[in-house]
Write a protein that binds this DNA or RNA. Structure first.
Length: 1036
RNA sequence: GCGGGAAUGGCGGAAUGGUAGACGCGCUGGUCUCAAACACCAGUGACUUCACGGUCGUGCGAGUUCGAGUCUCGCUUCCCGCACCA
């Protein structure tokens, strides 16, 4: 009986839904396993074959774990707030809620086609008030907490207030943007607003004026990771730095834990490295320098305090607060010129700049040990936002400082002797200190310790750990996001809404354009202005708000009392296996890890880290096809090469010098002994035709006009054109224009022919890969496309009148017309086949190109597998005992597939199923005791075919309630094995020997081999290496 | 520039330090067919040989080892990330 996926697949999908096969409940009798796909944003573009890769892989793992006896949570939902829907609303007037709902529906329909085992009852959408109630709730928890760096955890703001009331802020060790010390009395005498302003500096969600990435075109502030090379990630619009009052998330408080936590999770090394770099921890020291003739101290940050004796200049960031105060009158003009220049430059220009620049302030710092006067400069290469925004310039030990010193002719004092470390770079922390007073002779590492101690005892410096990581901007001047559950009084003091007022629902509007630096919500007076005089925050939360905790909601998605019940959290704990794209490496993953740690501090979740194991799926690239459209040049070359040769032989070619044309010659073709001239042009170029007519008339030439349109029509019949030219030659007519009823407006030329013409003859265009098969264009389908309306094709006659395209590997994208839709694949080959082919392409983690051709291999395999169960049209499975060989095939498969799924190597599993199927066909095996376990093992990969066969085998319940087959090692071994025989490591022969043969017996057998004797040339081998059950190597 | 990853037939890719190229695509030949498609069978790294066989072969160059695609060192190219982070 034929395998017909289109019949069996929809049947079982409906049955699974009907039977609630994928419904998951807390079950304390089974171990839990939580498998999560990264939260998709439902874009309007629909899925291409690259998208489901991870979903299929996680689906296979989920089904496998279930068969292994785990209670598997495998949910799906949508990151439904976001910019694209809002942009779409601005462009098309469709409310984001509507377009988002529609996009989710089509996304779910496409996923539904693939037979994925999600428990849709647990679906969440971040734009659902029932969901974002808890996003707002967590936000308020963070608002109401501060980070105690001593206890190394978040604590309620109320405890901080209590401390202030007793002791002021003395003894408080906090992650804070507040500097300065106040006493309890000072605190108590502050106005309520002043107190709130102080507290704001301690909150984990806080407001501050920050320099933000403002994107005028999008009308919003962007996070650092949404800005790529100075332009917005979405749309590529310019981004400028602008000061604004914004919500900020104090992720820096968790920097150390985010870093150390990386050692406890199973993430890919590359991803861990990425996060480490992003957090960017560096250990160094802050040092205060006195400034000559000034009360101010200059605070710098350095990771190399040991090089302090090599400091020959200081550099401040141009925006540094001290610049104005310390600049001397004499230098004021120069500094101003420099600052103006810096301001005039865009972020992008600054990043691209390779040459150092700066200006001298006229002020001097005093060296804390030598007392030397050190000139203070400002320079762009020192950044306001990092460290203290000021450095000491040590040109002998820092590349940039050296370049700066070179340019401004500043002295270079060698302070580290690296002669005993050949190959050490300038900035390596090795060598012996010289020219450094009391540090002389010390190794760098010891010198760092020594100087740190001295700085500290002198009270002019301190060890300090610094991070590159910045607090995340948490405000967006946008509509389609979570509103802030915050109101402000007349003085601008922020108050949290009471929990009872959550969710604060997003009000309806039809106007989405931002204005004046404010989001669309600002225009909704009735919503913003409250009766009691308070005003709402008019920004919305960023995209990462909902996605920072969504995986917790899946544990208990309908709970109205909490974001998830303690019972659910206790049972499901955390995500065991997380799969998704590497693009979330530093954004989503860092943010959600931070939220999880915060909730952990609060005792609301049970683990420090949200995701135990993480796998990044690779991208699937597209294979684009190109067609070549003929330019006018092509027709001229074509006539020359294919048609006119005999005419030139008869009449002789001539060239007529140009009169008033731009081209070199007046006519495209002219002849020595015939007064006919030929002009090739598009019929659309009426002006040109008129001019040529006039010129021909003046020259007393008869004119034949060949239009590219008619040539296109006749392109596959060169003889017809030749005949027409022939009759024109013989005619007496002064003007011959041919057929004006043409159907072709363009001509496309088979790629196999274009090498005969010059490259300028063609323009390359993408063509939809779905109408191309093995680079051959399907002309029937092509003619239906708008692209080829009124087009003709020059076919490759030598190769059976085909039209070929060239190909290129590119990103899969509508723009390249190379998008392959999974729906089409499922329709043609079935979901099981599509799923297995996706896996078969290669390792999940690796990027690879899609090639639709190869899917026939998997399709053929499934047909063969199906046929194992049938005798002609009849389902026929025998109950006989399996043979040794059959058992070996089965158990080898159990071992291989089990091992490979465990190491997430799905491609080799599919390969192995193919091998097994081929083996069993050879063995003519249709035995239940072999086939039934195979059906169970195939089920995670091809759930539909497995369910069908499982039921035909007589089972009533789903195959996913079966148990994964157990391995019996005894069946793996065969009696004999073909041993490779090597001479000096090179394979020279193979020999069939008992698998368990002893070294001595093997040696004897091998030495008896004629081929081996030939290599030994009568000598005895020096040494015999025998690996039992594996191989034999003779050393001669 | 810094950091990470990769490099194996025409293509996607296999290979606990032990028979390199499994499996599939493609290609070639054959069977079936009036023919094509499907299906099935056989072959398919390069060079060489009538053949048996031999030589070379996992980006390049060294090394460790009885034995290296795999381990070590040095280079080349490509991909990804970060980019004046003091």
């Amino acid at each position: 009986m034929e395998y017909r996926p289109s019949e069996i697949e929809p049947k079982w999908r409906a049955w699974w839904i009907n039977q609630c096969t994928y419904a998951v409940h807390i079950d304390h009798t089974k171990p839990k396993y939580y498998i999560l796909d990264m939260f998709p944003y439902p874009s309007g573009a629909g899925l291409h074959v690259g998208h489901p890769l991870g979903y299929i892989a996680s689906d296979i793992l989920s089904r496998y774990k279930r068969l292994q006896g785990f209670n598997v949570l495998h949910p799906m939902g949508f990151d439904a707030f976001g910019l694209p829907a809002e942009q779409y609303a601005i462009d098309n007037g469709i409310h984001p809620a509507i377009s988002t709902r529609d996009n989710i529906a089509s996304f779910k329909r496409q996923l539904g086609n693939l037979g994925l085992c999600y428990d849709w009852n647990r679906e969440v959408q971040t734009c659902d008030p029932k969901f974002y109630k808890w996003t707002q709730w967590i936000f308020l928890q963070m608002f109401n907490h501060w980070y105690d760096t001593h206890a190394d955890q978040a604590r309620p703001i109320s405890e901080l207030i209590a401390h202030f009331e007793k002791n002021g802020n003395q003894g408080v060790q906090a992650a804070t943007s507040f500097d300065g010390i106040f006493t309890a009395d000072v605190w108590k005498n502050m106005s309520p607003k002043a107190q709130q302003d102080v507290l704001m500096n301690y909150r984990l969600m806080y407001r501050k004026v920050g320099y933000v990435n403002w994107c005028e075109a999008l009308g919003t502030v962007l996070a650092n990771d949404e800005v790529i090379n100075g332009v917005s990630e979405r749309g590529g619009h310019p981004v400028e730095i602008k000061p604004m009052l914004q919500w900020s998330m104090r992720i820096t408080a968790y920097a150390e834990r985010l870093l150390s936590g990386l050692d406890t999770v199973d993430y890919p090394d590359g991803l861990r490295m990425l996060q480490r770099n992003w957090i960017g921890r560096s250990e160094g020291a802050q040092v205060f320098f006195d400034i000559e003739n000034s009360e101010e101290k200059l605070e710098i940050y350095t990771t190399r305090p040991d090089t302090i004796f090599g400091a020959t200049f200081m550099v401040l960031a141009p925006e540094h607060d001290l610049v104005d105060q310390i600049t001397t009158e004499a230098q004021r003009a120069e500094i101003k010129t420099y600052l103006d220049w810096v301001k005039s430059r865009t972020e992008r220009e600054r990043q691209m700049e390779k040459v150092v620049s700066g200006a001298f302030t006229g002020a001097y710092a005093l060296h804390p040990f030598s007392g030397a006067r050190i000139p203070i400069y400002i320079a762009e290469y020192v950044l306001k936002g990092y460290g203290t925004g000021a450095i000491m310039g040590v040109p002998a030990d820092d590349e940039r400082d050296f370049r700066f010193a070179e340019k401004y002719k500043l002295p270079v004092v060698q302070i580290v002797d690296k002669t005993m470390y050949p190959g050490a770079e300038m900035e390596d922390k090795v060598g012996k200190m010289v020219n450094s007073d009391f540090l002389n002779g010390m190794e760098v590492v010891d010198a760092i310790k020594e100087i740190s101690g001295r700085l500290e005892s002198k009270g002019i410096g301190k060890k300090r750990v610094q991070y590159k990581l910045r607090d995340a901007n948490y405000s967006r001047q946008r509509y389609w996001g979570e509103p802030f559950p915050i109101v402000y009084d007349a003085e601008g003091v922020a108050y949290a809404l009471p929990e009872s007022e959550l969710p604060l629902e997003l009000p309806h509007t039809t106007e989405f354009k931002p204005g004046g630096g404010k989001g669309p919500l600002a225009q909704l007076d009735h919503w913003v202005k409250l009766p009691d005089g308070l005003e709402r925050d008019t920004d919305t939360m960023p995209g990462f708000a909902g996605s920072s905790w969504y995986f917790l909601r899946y544990m208990d998605p309908h709970n109205e009392e909490a974001f998830a019940s303690p019972e659910a959290i206790n049972y499901w704990q955390d995500v065991d296996f997380y799969i998704g794209g590497a693009e979330h490496a530093v954004g989503h993953l860092l943010y959600s890890r931070m939220w999880h740690k915060f909730l952990f501090d609060k005792g609301l979740v049970k683990t420090e880290e949200p995701y135990k194991k993480l796998v990044n799926q690779g991208m699937i690239g597209g294979r684009s096809n190109h067609v070549y459209r003929a330019n006018e040049r092509f027709f001229e070359e074509y006539l020359m090469l294919k048609v006119l040769k005999p005419f030139f032989e008869s009449y002789g070619p001539i060239k007529i010098a140009h009169t008033d044309f731009e081209e070199d010659y007046t006519y495209d073709f002219a002849f020595g002994s015939n007064d006919l001239v030929i002009e090739v042009t598009s019929a659309k170029q009426i002006d040109k035709i008129e001019r040529v007519k006039k010129t021909a008339f003046t020259d007393h030439k008869r004119l034949l006009i060949l239009t590219t349109e008619e040539l296109s029509d006749l392109i596959n019949e060169p003889k017809v054109i030749a005949d027409k030219i022939q009759s024109a030659m013989q005619s007496k007519e002064p003007l011959i224009t041919l057929n004006d009823k043409t159907s072709s407006e363009q001509l496309y030329v088979s790629h196999s022919l274009i090498h005969k013409y010059s490259p300028e003859s063609f323009t390359k265009h993408h063509v939809d890969v779905n109408i191309v098969d093995s680079d051959v264009l399907d002309l029937e389908k092509a003619r239906k496309k708008i692209q080829f309306k009124n087009a003709n094709f020059k076919l490759d006659a030598a190769n059976g009148d085909v039209f070929t395209c060239s190909f290129e590997l590119e990103k899969m994208s509508k723009r390249y017309a190379n998008v392959v839709n999974p729906d089409d694949m499922v329709e043609q080959h079935g979901a099981d086949c599509f799923r297995m082919y996706e896996m078969f392409l290669g390792p999940i983690e690796v990027s690879k190109p899609w090639d639709t051709k190869g899917i026939t291999g998997v399709s053929g395999f499934l047909k063969k597998f199906w046929q194992l169960f049938f005798n002609g049209s009849e389902f026929h499975v025998s109950n006989e005992q399996p043979t040794r060989d059959e058992n070996r095939v089965l158990h080898t498969c159990i071992k291989k597939v089990t091992d490979d799924i465990e190491r997430f190597s799905m491609n080799t599993c599919v390969s192995h199923f193919m091998i097994v199927t081929n083996d069993l066909r050879r063995l003519n095996c249709n035995k239940r005791s072999v086939l039934e376990p195979l059906v169970i093992m195939l089920a995670p990969f091809g759930p539909h075919i497995a369910e069908e066969l499982w039921h035909r085998l007589g089972h009533e319940s789903t195959v996913f309630n079966a148990a994964w087959p157990a391995l019996d090692e005894a069946h793996l071994k065969s009696d004999t094995k073909e041993f490779p025989v090597q001479i000096n490591g090179k394979l020279r022969a193979t020999i069939e020997l008992p698998t368990e043969i002893s070294a001595a017996d093997a040696e004897a057998a091998v030495l008896a081999l004629e081929q081996i004797q030939r290599w030994l040339e009568g000598q005895k081998p020096k040494k015999v290496v025998f690996i039992p059950g594996r191989m034999i190597n003779l050393v001669v």
